[in-house]
C-alpha cells in the first residue's frame, strides 16, 4: 500500500500536471492583460486536437525531423519520472537513478534533438532559432550544474532524491534556488529572455525552432515543453522548500500536495512577471545569465568551505 502512492503520483505528474501548469500560466497571463483567456484545461484540448490532425512535412527533411519529437518526449518522460521535482519520492532502490548528471544530460539530449530537427528542415528561421537556443543552453548549463552540484556536495550524495530527503544548508538552498529561477526563465524561453507568444520570427528563440512542426509533431513538442517546465519549476520549488525547516518532515501526501501547489504557484509568478516585464535585448541576455552563474558559484563556494 505504501508503495502505491509514488506510482500514482508519478502517473499524475506525467499526465495531468504538465498541461495543467501550461493552462494555469496562460490563464494568469490573460488575467494580467485584462482578458478572460482560454479555460485552464485548454492545453489538453489543444494536444488532443493536434494529435487528430494530419501533419505537413517538408520533402527536404530526413528521419531526424520525425524522430526528434518522439525522442524529446521519451527523454522528458524519463526525466519527469526519475527526478523528485514534485516532492514525491520513488522507492529507495531508484534513488541512484536521480543522479544530477543524468538530469543534465537527459535534458541536453532532448534539446540536442530538437535543435537537429530545426536545422533538418533547412529553413532559415529553424537554423536561427537553433543557434540561439544552443547559445542560451551553453550559458544555462553551468548555472544548473554548479547550483545543483553545490546542493549535492552539501548533502553528501550525488542523487537528488537522497539530497532532498536530508538536510541542506538554507543559505545554499536560497542561493541555488534563485540561480535556478534565472536558469529556468532562460531554459524554458520565458519572458526576460524570450517571448513565448511572439509573432515576429526574427525575435523568436524556441518558437523559431518549432515553426515547421504541425499536427502530431507539434502536440508532442508542446507536451515535452510542458514536462520540462514542470521539472525546472518543481526542482526550484523543492530547493526553496529546504529553506523552511519543517517541510521535509511532513507526511508524504502533504509533501506532494505542497510540491504541486508550489509548482503551480511558481507558474503564476512567472505569468505575473511576464505581465509586468519586457523582453531583454538579445545582447543583454548573457549579462542577465551571469547573475545566475555567480549565485551558483557563491553557493558552491559555501558548499566547498562547509565540508
Amino acid at each position: 500500500m505504501k508503495n502505491i502512492f509514488p506510482l500514482i503520483f508519478t502517473v499524475v505528474n506525467l499526465l495531468i500536471i504538465p498541461l495543467l501548469l501550461t493552462g494555469v500560466i496562460r490563464k494568469v497571463k490573460a488575467l494580467m492583460q485584462n482578458r478572460i483567456g482560454a479555460p485552464v484545461l485548454q492545453p489538453f484540448y489543444d494536444v488532443a486536437k493536434f494529435l487528430s490532425k494530419s501533419e505537413t512535412i517538408s520533402k527536404n527533411t530526413s528521419w531526424v525531423f520525425t524522430a526528434a519529437p518522439i525522442i524529446g518526449l521519451s527523454v522528458a518522460f524519463l526525466a519527469g519520472a526519475l527526478f523528485p521535482w514534485s516532492g514525491s519520492f520513488l522507492p529507495g532502490k531508484f534513488a541512484a537513478a536521480s543522479n544530477i548528471f543524468l538530469l543534465i544530460y537527459l535534458l541536453a539530449l532532448g534539446k540536442f534533438f530538437s535543435m537537429l530537427a530545426a536545422m533538418d528542415t533547412g529553413s532559415a528561421f529553424g537554423g536561427l532559432g537553433a543557434s540561439r537556443e544552443a547559445t542560451i543552453s551553453m550559458m544555462v548549463e553551468p548555472i544548473v550544474i554548479t547550483g545543483l552540484g553545490a546542493l549535492c556536495l552539501n548533502a553528501g550524495t550525488p542523487n537528488l532524491q537522497s539530497a532532498f530527503a536530508g538536510n541542506i544548508n538554507p543559505i545554499i538552498a536560497g542561493l541555488t534556488g534563485t540561480a535556478l529561477i534565472i536558469a529556468s526563465l532562460a531554459e524554458l524561453s520565458r519572458i526576460p529572455v524570450d517571448d513565448p507568444t511572439t509573432h515576429l520570427e526574427l525575435t523568436m528563440v524556441h518558437e523559431a525552432m518549432i515553426l515547421e512542426n504541425s499536427g502530431r509533431n507539434l502536440a508532442l513538442i508542446e507536451y515535452t515543453t510542458a514536462i520540462r517546465s514542470c521539472i525546472f519549476y518543481g526542482l526550484t520549488t523543492q530547493v526553496f522548500f529546504h529553506m523552511l525547516p519543517f517541510t521535509h518532515s511532513m507526511n508524504p501526501i502533504l509533501q506532494y500536495a505542497a510540491g504541486i501547489a508550489g509548482v503551480l504557484l511558481f507558474g503564476c509568478a512567472v505569468a505575473f512577471a511576464e505581465g509586468i516585464l519586457v523582453k531583454l535585448k538579445w545582447r543583454n541576455v548573457p549579462n542577465f545569465l551571469t547573475f545566475g552563474t555567480v549565485l551558483s558559484l557563491l553557493a558552491a563556494l559555501i558548499a566547498v568551505t562547509q565540508r
Partner: peptide, 18 residues
C-alpha cells in the same frame, strides 16, 4: 570590462578573500 566579466572577477575576489 563588461559587467558580466566584472561579476566573475568580483566572485574571484570573494573566493580569494575567503
Amino acid at each position: 570590462a563588461s559587467p558580466p566579466v566584472t561579476l566573475i572577477m568580483a566572485f574571484g575576489a570573494i573566493a580569494a578573500g575567503y
